[in-house]
Structures are given as C-alpha cells and as structure tokens.
C-alpha cells in the first residue's frame, strides 16, 4: 500500500514552494537543493502540478514557480490526486465474488472514506501551519 516517489517528493516540493513563494517565484533548483531532490524529477513533478492548475510557471532568468491559488484553497486531495492519481486502497479488477463485494462495501470503502475525509479537509495552509509550529518548538530545544 505504497505512495509513489512522485507523491512523496511532489508533496514535499509543493510544501517547500508554499513556504518560500511569499517573496516571489521559487526556482526548482532551489527546491531541489533544500529538499535533497533530483532537479530532473522535479521538472516532471511540476508539469503534473501545472496541469492540475496548482502552480503557475514564470519563464525567464529569474523565473520559477508560484502557487496558482492561495494555500487555504488547495486541498491535500487535489495535490495527491495530481501526483498519485487514484488514492483508493483497492481496485475492482478481477472476478467479483459475493464475499468480495461485501468486503468492498464494508471494509475497503470504509477505509477509503476515512482517508478521503482527511484529504478533503486538510489544506496546504494547514500543512504550512503545522510546519511553523514544528520549527518554533525546534528553536526552544536549543536553549
């Protein structure tokens, strides 16, 4: 039940963009350096994010990317949908049986709904907020 590297790296990159784009557009090479990610792969990831209208690319020497909408209007569901596709824990390939159908409705759909609830109700702003709090507590630990 694994999230792909695209989903994992893409989410980190987008959160990084959210943190740094207040001062202007953010270059992929800066994100690559900060997040220890491959620039090539980031280009691939950001073409997904652009297609999903989550980021806007700015061309030119001082170019880069900015968020296409404010972080409180970007749900985790949109981000992972753009990067991972379908987030369901099962597919309906193969022959269906009566017990299988019962389990789809009473176990796998239930899990999907719970996960979906989190994805739909968590925004990029929520993620940025929780990072800020984490950094605040990290500062205190140096005292």
């Amino acid at each position: 039940m694994k999230i792909s590297t695209k989903g994992r790296y893409g989410l980190r990159a987008l959160i990084d963009l959210g943190i740094h784009c207040e001062k202007g557009c953010v270059s992929l090479s800066d994100i690559a350096q900060r997040q220890d990610l491959s620039l090539n792969y980031l280009e691939n990831i950001f073409s997904n994010l652009k297609r999903a209208e989550l980021v806007i690319g700015i061309a030119g020497a001082q170019g880069g990317y900015v968020l296409a909408k404010s972080p409180e209007n970007i749900a985790l569901e949109e981000i992972l949908s753009a990067l991972e596709g379908d987030m369901s824990v099962y597919d309906t390939a193969g022959e269906q049986t009566e017990l299988g159908d019962f389990l789809n409705r009473n176990v796998w759909d239930v899990i999907d709904a719970k996960v979906d609830n989190i994805l739909k109700n968590t925004t990029l702003q929520d993620l940025l907020n929780s990072i800020q709090h984490k950094n605040a507590s990290a500062d205190c630990s140096k005292l």
């Binding site: 999230i3 994992r8 989410l11 980190r12 959160i15 824990v89 899990i111 996960v115 989190i118 993620l127």
Partner: peptide, 15 residues
C-alpha cells in the same frame, strides 16, 4: 526536517 511525514502519519492512523 521532513515537511511531509506528518501527512503520511495521519493517513496511516485513518487506515
């Protein structure tokens, strides 16, 4: 300093 692990933890708890 992972920016995203918390998300995966939340999803795991839901499952």
């Amino acid at each position: 300093n992972c920016l995203s692990r918390n998300v995966w933890v939340k999803i795991t708890h839901a499952i």
